[in-house]
Design a protein around this nucleic acid. Structure first.
Lengths: 125, 125
DNA sequence: TGGGGTCATTAGCCAAGCTAATGAGTTAGG
DNA sequence: CCTAACTCATTAGCTTGGCTAATGACCCCA
């Protein structure tokens, strides 16, 4: 129906920064985390992460819920809408990547695949 | 003498942003350019490039010289000091990279080399 | 010789990082 | 058991490096 159209339009409106998308995708992938955990994961300071969370929350893509067992803590989770944004963005990225990769020979693709393994070793040995 | 020590200290003081270093290195590599040319090369707007040039000029790493044949234009060139900064930074980067690359097998290094060629094709076909 | 275009630059906005400070809540030591 | 120290999240306010709009000098063509 026109719900999917609405979704598209809404997403077109929303422009996420790299760090915002990164946090959102991380939440979708790994579930709820506290702001502190997120700041460590993203290598930014807690206030910076707080700002990122605020933006995502204002856009309705994540929600804060208090931790029942520790009043200081807060859990941040991706909303249904947030999951949808990640899924759709990934779909578009994959489409782009696929169109570029299809211009390569199978041999070239294999070389790239091996390279990613080596690069991973290089950066985090 | 202690001139080299002073150089090091001065360089330690100076913290160049990525875009500043990129412009400086480009000038060292390719000689004088106008601000406009630099902004096109770096994919930023002329005012942004102007700000970058100002910072480099204030640090004594580049100099502006008017174009004799066209009063609107200005040439930006790396100073001797700017060349030294680029050379030293490259030296340190190369040292780091070399230490990481030497942990790889020759086969792995060859794979990486081939991958860079393919990636270049992929990004700018 | 004057009017449209090109260049560098200035002014001022915004996003996203940072440090320092605050306040609520937890925990450990006496 | 209670207080002092710590741990979170959050707020306040700074800095940097992008941006657009505006300005002023200058070139060139008709």
């Amino acid at each position: 129906m026109h719900l999917s159209r609405r979704l598209r339009n809404e997403r077109a409106d929303i422009e996420l920064s790299d760090s915002q998308f990164s946090v959102l995708a991380y939440l979708v992938r790994t579930g709820a985390h506290t702001p502190n955990e997120l700041s460590v994961w993203e290598h930014v300071t807690p206030p910076s992460m707080n700002r990122t969370i605020n933006a995502l929350e204002a856009a309705g893509l994540v929600a804060r819920t208090p931790d029942a067992s520790d009043g200081r803590k807060v859990f941040v989770t991706a909303t249904e809408n947030g999951c949808a944004v990640v899924k759709e963005t990934r779909r578009r990225r994959d489409a782009w990547l696929h169109s570029r990769l299809s211009a390569l020979t199978p041999d070239e693709r294999r070389t790239l695949e091996e390279a990613t393994v080596i690069l991973r070793k290089l950066v985090a040995p």
